[in-house]
Design a protein around this nucleic acid. Structure first.
Lengths: 252, 252
DNA sequence: CCACTACCGCGTACGCCGTACCCATTTATT
DNA sequence: AATAAATGGGTACGGCGTACGCGGTAGTGG
């Protein structure tokens, strides 16, 4: 029953932690933990048990330390989320191969990769990325996306507009998909029970005759596998739109 | 620091409340509240103070009643969220006018309307619509969207695919936009301070030379007004893609 | 060798949250 | 008048993030 904020705490602390890590001073006991270990444990916990289970107490327990020990490494939960975001955004290793490929292939790759990222870390969709901090990984990904649009004669605004549109679509779709899938899995209520619960009122709705088109939909419309089909379907439409735009710019 | 779940509680209770309201039995004291009033107060509270401030205690206080009194009307917070969702989705009154218009205009209207909805109720983006319950308003909107695609020779799957794609894009973009705007407004940190905080590390990043394209972007790329521009820009691209698809179907 | 100092681990406590439980009160039926 | 049902809401429990502060530890300077 909890969402989460990122970018709410001490921004510069988060950024320092992302870019520089912590410079150790020689005095005092050696730290028993590392920032890295904490972030990894937190991501693993969120992946497995969902964002609602991501409490400082649970992260600490997973690491076998006291709750407040975490605060020696991270200023607060907000900054921990910032770090988790940058952590999972680590770009694929083989980005270099993509130099010189067709822009359309590259954008499709980016879209699919982003989608997979959300599938792997569904809690991303519940994190309020109010102010996406520009961590090293975010910046690398952004640079890569921009490189895909080299040499097409686009302005900065246009490039960013295309990338924004792509990411907006993919994340929006992932949101719909992942949240539904996740509800079907780990809830106490199965998908069948859910539809069974909706059944009675739906029959009323159908009988009312106010929604003829909704109830005229084919049975297989929401069938299994419609979602993977969904990404490629919408992505192709969107990239068709991009192609029209790029062609117009080239022609002018 | 809280997200929120919807569709987690007793589904059938939520649905009953949405479709039928509560049938009053004659015995006992007259209720001092109505479901309607509670939902409206909750929406107003969420609009003004954000989802984090939406606690049962705060809603009750806004209504001048005891916290637990709310539970006489709503089974729990989860169901209250379900009701809030359906409440704000109330369709525009003038949907009937749109019969027979061009599909492209209608879809654009739907996209812009959805976008405005998110601007008006930013907390929508933080609500985990895991299982969007089909309330009367949701169903009416869906029916309207389907009606826009009448007569184009599309299958059920294709119609739903187009609508899904449109909504995914718009909600994804709204998410980026609203969360950023909201952070800029009501946080203790202004936008200038935010960028000032990013400044030092950004200079380091620039000096590293690893992100040439990012730092070669024009200064006005992220300027004010880029966001409204953003919706229409992306929407046009997407609808171009739709047009290509529809034309291909027609031609075949 | 020893004080000093900086740092680590973390126990306790406070004020939030959702809500289970229960009881006094009010009202319509019998 | 007695009964049954519904309302209002107080109290309490177990969760949360985290401020504060204390005892222990490891390098440093005398």
């Amino acid at each position: 029953m909890t969402s989460a904020h990122s970018g709410r705490g001490d921004i510069s602390r988060s950024l320092e932690l992302m870019w520089r890590g912590r410079e150790r001073s020689t005095r005092g006991p050696k730290p028993g933990l590392t920032l890295e270990r904490i972030v990894e444990a937190a991501v693993e916990l969120a992946d497995r048990d969902g964002i609602a289970a991501l409490s400082m107490r649970n992260v600490a327990a997973a690491l076998g330390v006291g709750t407040m020990s975490l605060y020696r490494y991270v200023p607060g939960k907000s900054e921990l989320l910032d770090l988790m975001l940058d952590h999972v955004e680590a770009p694929a290793a083989d980005l270099a191969e993509w130099r010189g490929r067709e822009w359309r292939d590259t954008l499709q790759f980016i879209g699919q990769g982003t989608y997979r990222l959300y599938l792997r870390h569904p809690w991303l969709l519940q994190v309020n990325q109010a102010r996406p901090l520009l961590g090293p990984n975010a910046l690398t990904n952004f640079e890569f996306a921009l490189s895909a649009l080299d040499g097409l004669g686009l302005t900065s605004r246009e490039k960013v507009g295309l990338i924004t549109t792509l990411v907006a679509y993919v994340s929006g779709l992932a949101r719909q998909h992942v949240l539904t899938a996740q509800a079907n899995e780990d809830a106490e209520l199965s998908q069948e029970e859910f539809w069974a619960a909706q059944g009675p009122v739906m029959e009323l709705a159908q009988a009312s005759g106010a929604y003829p088109r909704v109830f005229a939909l084919e049975d297989d419309t929401f069938a299994e596998g419609s979602v993977e089909y969904g990404l490629d379907f919408g992505l192709a439409l969107l990239l068709d739109g991009f192609a029209t735009f790029v062609a117009a710019k080239r022609g002018s």
